[in-house]
């Protein structure tokens, strides 16, 4: 196990060896990812209880959605509280295309993803000129307007929503009535895809640009960073994956109506895991979702339904607690100890 030992502190890192060390660190991250994902893929075979399997599916789905949100909110620092709009767009594109036109969900998700990216660019044009809180407020308002529009649009089922027809189990139509395990693997696949895209972006120009924009946009501009284009790109990628998650959710629950896919609650549930686990990190969304989503589901069974809003209060408290104790999220618990170790090792 040479890979886990720290480099000798006495050695002054020359340029070439520093570059090599970084490449090794990247490979290690990928390896950890592979191991974690392989382990996760086996989970539903160990947990046979249907209720718990549902919790697992939702946890991984929210991890994927929160990681999608993280691309814009965590890496680029644009705190959207309206991602329910893209989730809803994905769910509606997939449902309408499938139920009305017979297009398989895979096509609907792709179409919904592209449409959402387009909508994100259209909305970004005015919204990314707003600073900080004004941006967040604008995203809430726009998502609520979207909800109202869908509510009153009969072609997409209006307030009644859309019921998916019953079909035999198939990966082609993403319908599995008897065994839920395939849903878990689809959600995991989506998470892995978003994780991997984030991993690639982290060491690309966009990745560095986004973080520079988040930390100090004016300083970034003086270093050649195209701030507006950075935000637009992050929004498009983020919306694309969020919509695919929406399409998956529609297939999973087989019935959607405006409130069940576009309410503000979803916007919160996409932001919170990343904030809880560690904003702007590769693993924060998964860690946060693994804590928050089981808690949500348990509180739902005990407190009854989603209408009470008690669960939202619970998340709010949880996030406040973390914000007070660990502003960088739960993951920073591990990071802290590591930097402390490095400092001890330093001469």
């Amino acid at each position: 196990m040479t890979s886990t030992t720290l480099p000798a502190p006495a050695a002054v890192p020359a340029t070439a060896s520093a570059a090599r060390a970084f490449a090794a660190k990247r490979r290690r991250t990928l390896l950890v990812g592979l191991v974690v994902f392989a382990g996760m893929a086996a989970l539903p075979y160990l947990v046979r209880d249907v209720y718990l399997q549902n919790v697992l599916i939702l946890t991984v789905m929210y991890a994927a959605l929160s990681q999608s949100w993280n691309i814009l909110g965590g890496y680029c620092g644009q705190i959207s509280l309206g991602h329910a709009l893209y989730f809803g767009l994905g769910a509606y594109f997939t449902s309408v295309l499938f139920v009305t036109y017979g297009v398989v969900p895979w096509g609907g998700m792709l179409a919904g993803g592209l449409a959402s990216a387009g909508v994100a660019l259209l909305l970004g044009w005015p919204c990314f000129r707003l600073a900080g809180h004004y941006f967040s407020i604008a995203t809430i308002v726009i998502a609520e307007i979207g909800l109202l529009l869908v509510h009153n649009w009969d072609f997409v089922g209006g307030a009644m929503g859309i019921q998916w027809p019953f079909n035999p189990d198939s990966w082609w139509t993403l319908q599995f009535a008897r065994d839920k395990v395939p849903y878990f693997h689809f959600a995991l696949g989506l998470f892995v895809a978003v994780w991997f895209v984030t991993y690639l972006i982290e060491d690309s120009r966009w990745g560095y640009w986004w973080r520079a924009v988040k930390d100090d946009a004016q300083a970034a501009e003086s270093l050649g960073v195209e701030v507006f284009r950075s935000k637009m790109a992050a929004a498009a990628v983020s919306a694309f994956f969020t919509a695919i998650g929406g399409g998956f959710y529609a297939a999973y629950v087989s019935y959607i109506d405006p409130e069940s896919v576009m309410s503000f609650r979803f916007s919160l549930l996409f932001a919170l895991p990343a904030v809880l686990g560690g904003i702007g990190t590769l693993w924060g969304a998964l860690v946060g979702a693994a804590i928050l989503i089981p808690l949500t589901e348990i509180s739902r069974s005990y407190l009854g339904g989603t209408g009470s809003g008690l669960d939202l209060i619970l998340y709010g408290l949880l996030v406040m607690l973390v914000a007070l104790a660990r502003p960088e999220g739960v993951l920073s618990l591990f990071k802290r100890t590591r930097t402390a170790r490095n400092q001890e090792a330093a001469p």
């Binding site: 520093a18 060491d203 690309s204 120009r205 560095y208 640009w209 973080r211 520079a212 988040k214 930390d215 100090d216 004016q218 300083a219 970034a220 270093l223 050649g224 960073v225 702007g280």
Partner: peptide
């Protein structure tokens, strides 16, 4: 006005992209 969520070399990489598009 350093980018405080990034480490030192990452801060400098931001400037490096002006002449080197590859990370």
């Amino acid at each position: 006005r350093s980018f405080d969520s990034m480490n030192v070399v990452e801060n400098v990489i931001v400037g490096g992209f002006v002449r080197h598009p590859r990370a």
